[in-house]
């Protein structure tokens, strides 16, 4: 497989090229926000970003060689984590603010108008602060994003068919490649061996925090949809339904 013979440098170069373009909300934001208007803007942006996320995933070396079922499972499990990590990356140089897009920036206080969202904003801001303290580099960021995608669904059931088994093996090799790439990116920072190991650990530990915020966010969005605060449609609805039905 080509990705197993690819150097970590080449792997990072490919995932850097896969990065989605900057996306704009392109709405006239009427402030102050209402609960409905803020949720509508957030979900509109998420829906646009999701379409680009599929295209991004397809450019991760080896992803399209996985079975279609595995591709679908991985994306439906990680989509909100990926959106949140992107949000943290855009916000890393803006303490106290969440940069959802260049034309849609919110302070934590603006979260007050949506019931239950300030808690999520605070968790997002806390993780962003941690990335700021660590001085997260772009190469590390793209590796973490690919790790979230590839590590999102470790199925508990054993592969039943040859195709499933092959796809599972490809996925494990892909995870090896992305870990190698992150280790390589860290090795370029001029740290001691011990500091490199610690940095790898700290970055990996942040992923569990992102999974936790994503679960909170998923519950929040499902509640907002159930209460008819926001109309969820298109790809976002499909991803949300997939998630809630698999967890119920």
């Amino acid at each position: 497989n080509h990705q197993s013979t690819m150097s970590p440098e080449e792997f990072i170069s490919r995932i850097m090229e896969a990065e989605p373009p900057e996306i704009y909300l392109m709405e006239d934001l009427k402030k102050p926000f209402t609960e409905a208007s803020m949720m509508m803007s957030l979900t509109n942006l998420a829906d646009k970003e999701l379409v680009l996320m599929i295209s991004w995933a397809k450019k991760i070396p080896g992803f399209v060689e996985l079975s279609l079922a595995d591709q679908i499972h991985l994306l439906k499990c990680c989509w909100l984590e990926i959106l949140m990590l992107g949000l943290m990356w855009r916000s890393v140089d803006h303490p106290g603010k969440l940069i959802f897009s260049p034309d849609f920036k919110l302070s934590r206080e603006e979260g007050q108008c949506v019931e239950g969202i300030m808690e999520i904003f605070d968790m997002l801001l806390a993780a962003t602060s941690r990335f700021r303290e660590l001085k997260l580099q772009r190469e590390e960021y793209v590796c973490l994003k690919a790790m979230i995608l590839l590590n999102s669904n470790l199925s508990t059931s054993s592969p039943q068919t040859t195709e499933e088994l092959e796809s599972r093996n490809k996925l494990l090799r892909l995870l090896d490649s992305v870990i190698d790439a992150l280790v390589w990116a860290i090795s370029k920072l001029g740290l001691s061996t011990q500091q490199q190991t610690l940095r790898l650990g700290h970055l990996a530990m942040l992923l569990s925090h992102i999974r936790h915020v994503s679960n909170k966010g998923m519950d929040h969005l499902s509640n907002m949809k159930r209460k008819n605060v926001v109309l969820v449609y298109n790809l976002l609805l499909e991803m949300l339904d997939a998630n809630t039905s698999s967890s119920s």
Partner: peptide
């Protein structure tokens, strides 16, 4: 088939090569 039915848009986007910008 059920997986494809449940994730129609996702399935379509994964399978086709149309520019995602056009679809958005």
């Amino acid at each position: 088939t059920s997986l494809k039915e449940k994730h129609k848009i996702l399935h379509q986007l994964l399978q086709n090569s149309t520019s995602p910008v056009d679809l958005a």
